[in-house]
Design a protein around this nucleic acid. Structure first.
Lengths: 207, 207
DNA sequence: CCCGTGTTTGACCAAATGGTTAAACCTAAA
DNA sequence: TTTAGGTTTAACCATTTGGTCAAACACGGG
């Protein structure tokens, strides 16, 4: 056997293809991207894409699965932890906004994918270990019963929190126009939201 | 002249094309849609698409402009009205969720469009009369100064409200998986949010 | 009734795109 | 040095897709 192993390990052709596909797919989507563009972006011949990943669909699934596989456990870990409710919400918001700040294209990528091909998403991309929010719901109900927070339906609470964390990134250009902010001002604004959303939620939960 | 005017006015060929394009574009996006599919959907010959709207891009812009042109004034009207703050927020949430309920594909369509082609969006689709949120901001500051609501940064408040209204629709399939809801349960859930989000915001604004 | 103008159609074209293949290439092992 | 097997490339193929065109069609006015 003669494997081409001269280059640094993370720099293999397969990895270069994956990285290029990751960038192109997340920015242009499955339909908008072309194999040629991905090849160019990786600086290699187009046929190599098919050599390593048989079809465009397979390549796309690889990228999608990697993205989802990284995103889900991060959420899951926080939502299922044993922390007291308030601390959990604090950390959830902080971690969620942090992750998205570092990967601003991901939420829209996931949303578009799951909207256009729900079956493919469920069958070949989604991991089996989805977050189970039941424990979080019980926690909320307990706090309500103890009178420590205002009565809210826990499903709505979690959707509210996720919405306030994710949407400003998904709709960033729209928000920028509405608020008349420069790119730099927007970055500061989004960073501020860690604190602002936390306070907003805590205020809403006061009994 | 011999104009084909036998059919009902709103049923003209041009209108049928527009309606078909509206449906296909909003569900599959610019890249995912094909002219043939739009023609089939309208039940006419493909060449007619080019006869009435010269290119795919032009047709797409027509649809996009119509969608945006309908969405923006609805927001603008509420946000710039002279109502007292609390009533304004109430109506805003109620109207916003109502509009999106009736057009669930629109927000994702707009978001995708503005993310992929910001220049085209700004130059040829966006109307000139954007909502001006300044009056709303002043209103919030005044209420804070009078001690009638808790101090919040008005920009964050408006982004919070919009996020909680829009995101559950944009990310509906994701939310369904997270919450384990059927399609019917989800519809009820989204309708409930008019009331729930309003209460949540009001609770967060209590001094 | 027939003509002219706007409308509709099927056939067609060129470019783009996903995918294939055979040959060239490179490297490690014998 | 030879050679076998994985790797890379350029050329090629079939299909799809946006777009065009000339002919056919329908209908109102002369």
């Amino acid at each position: 056997m003669a494997k081409r192993e001269s280059q640094a390990p993370g720099d293999s052709t397969e990895q270069k293809i994956f990285d290029a596909a990751h960038e192109v797919f997340t920015q242009k989507g499955m339909d908008g991207a072309t194999m040629q563009e991905i090849a160019d972006h990786a600086g290699i011949n187009k046929a190599l894409l098919h050599y390593y990943y048989r079809t465009k669909e397979k390549l796309y699934e690889s990228v999608a699965r990697a993205i989802i596989g990284r995103a889900i456990p991060a959420i899951r870990q926080i939502i299922e932890s044993e922390l007291p409710l308030e601390e959990k919400i604090r950390r959830f918001i902080d971690a969620y906004i942090g992750i998205i700040s570092r990967n601003p294209f991901i939420p829209l990528f996931i949303i578009s994918e799951v909207n256009k091909h729900p079956e493919r998403f469920i069958n070949s991309i989604l991991p089996s270990d989805l977050p189970k929010p039941q424990f979080f719901f019980n926690q909320v109900e307990a706090e309500i019963a103890a009178g420590r927070i205002r009565p809210v339906r826990p499903q709505h609470l979690i959707v509210n929190v996720i919405s306030m964390c994710v949407f400003p990134f998904v709709g960033k250009p729209m928000m920028r126009m509405l608020l008349g902010m420069s790119s730099g001002e927007m970055r500061v604004f989004l960073e501020e939201r860690k604190e602002e959303v936390t306070q907003f939620v805590m205020a809403a939960l006061r009994p």
